[in-house]
Design a protein around this nucleic acid. Sequence first.
RNA 1: GGGUGCGUAGCUCAGCUGGUAGAGCAGUGCCCUUUUAAGGCAUUGGUCGAAGGUUCGAUUCCUUCCGCACUCACCA
Length: 504
Amino acid sequence: MDDQKHSTLDDIISQRKEKIENIRQLGINPYPYAYNISHYSKSIIQQFDSLENETVQIAGRLMAIRLMGKAAFANILDSQGKIQIYLNKTAIGEKNYELFRLLDIGDFIGISGKVIKTRTGEITIQAESLTLLSKNIRPLPIVKEKDGVAHDAFTDKEQRYRKRYLDLIVNPQVRDVFINRSKILQAIRRFFDMRDFLEVETPVLQPLYGGANARPFTTYHNTLDRTLYLRIADELYLKRLIIGGFDKVYEIAKNFRNEGMDRNHNPEFTAIEFYQAYVDYNYMMDLVEKLFQSVAQALEVETAEFSGHTIKLMEPFARKPMFTLFEEYLGENISDYDIDKLRLLAKEKGLEIGAKANYGQILDELFGEFIEPKLIQPTFVTDYPKAISPLAKTHRSGNPQIVERFELFIGGSEFANAFSELNDPVDQRERLEAQAKLRDLGDEEAQVLDEDFLQAVEIGMPPTGGVGVGIDRLVMLFTGQASIKDVLLFPAMRPESAHNPEQQ
RNA sequence: GGGUGCGUAGCUCAGCUGGUAGAGCAGUGCCCUUUUAAGGCAUUGGUCGAAGGUUCGAUUCCUUCCGCACUCACCA
């Protein structure tokens, strides 16, 4: 017998193409146009008592075949989960059984049949008819499972990220993460819509970029014959809308930053920014706290497991001025330190500080090193140095070095950044001019002076509170994922160029 | 960017101090009409990430490069 067939990947693919021809010769279209579904796997299992012996029609992907001569069990995966089907030659007929023998794991099929329980008690659909819905020609990773333990699971992270469709087919817990991501986005939109915020869209392609300290992506518009930048933040456009008279606006959008990639950073990431007229950062703190809690409610959780800690989400978030935290964690009241004393303190604590660092930057370094990692439970840190906050209003206390700004920290990382927005046009111009000087001195992340934005502020901006929240990180918190790649369907990956040198 | 580790069949993994590779699953053929990591018998399948080097001989040792993970630094 020369029926043995090789099984390299190419062999398997050509075998499956032959099967497609065989199926066509049976008079069956391997790629039909539609199929009527009456139920999904999960609803059949949940409603078994009322569905027993009823006829249902389901469709999904064949994930396992246990063939026994003239009968077979198989598992079907649909959008809700898996269910077992049972077929035998007598019930489905000669021709359909012949078709079944030409099927492979990975094919889509439709099954019409009775809901039964097998001898071992598994809810099963006893097929009365079988319809091929789409033939697979490239083999899937095979994952087997017993007692909830997956065997030979598809675990290679690189392959999972590069071929997310396989990851989603084969790893059900991955599907859940992205379902939860969608629920989180829905909850956020509902939260702002209920409070009469207007959802807006502002440019991704910008002649100038601003609103954050970051390096941009650069692109080029042929008709305009000029360089454009991909947005690094929504801030300056959303403020123009507050100036334009919308009192409450929000935007959920991709930002692009031409910086490093690691488990907390992807070159494109999603953020929400929201602005409200006539309120200050205290009001916004309340709003952020309510936002997090309403997301928790939408997911029906009160805590989150994140970076090895149980985060309590439903209790009031701590609120502490930066200087108070310094006193708590470093045992020193540094509120009236000048730059030299700060520099000395940093040195004593063994922290390397660049020679050009200003007062605010040294303070920020100290904070990032000694305090930030210790802020595990949700904590609003308030009142930041002015030098690192060019868009925030000077503190009402009168200390000219401090602005009204807060950041929310959870599990040692930043989740939100907010200001009482600077609306004094003269002050704002001076601050952006100071940033421009930093740029001239070589700080690539310093902000660009946006003349149109300054003119807008000169037209008059009401007192305004503004907040930015990183959505990917929020999803990491609520889904317990340690890497941003696990909450992005298609995370940025370096090209696999080794096998395709032409693509370079 | 630095450090550590990894890259072997479609998938999951072995491969000891160098002698051109093995298993399970998937595939193929046969048996099997309530199985469930179904089972039984047989069987195919690999430029061992890429390129150089050492060697009579490299999956194994060395160098460089590519990719991924972890980690430190930086950033949201």
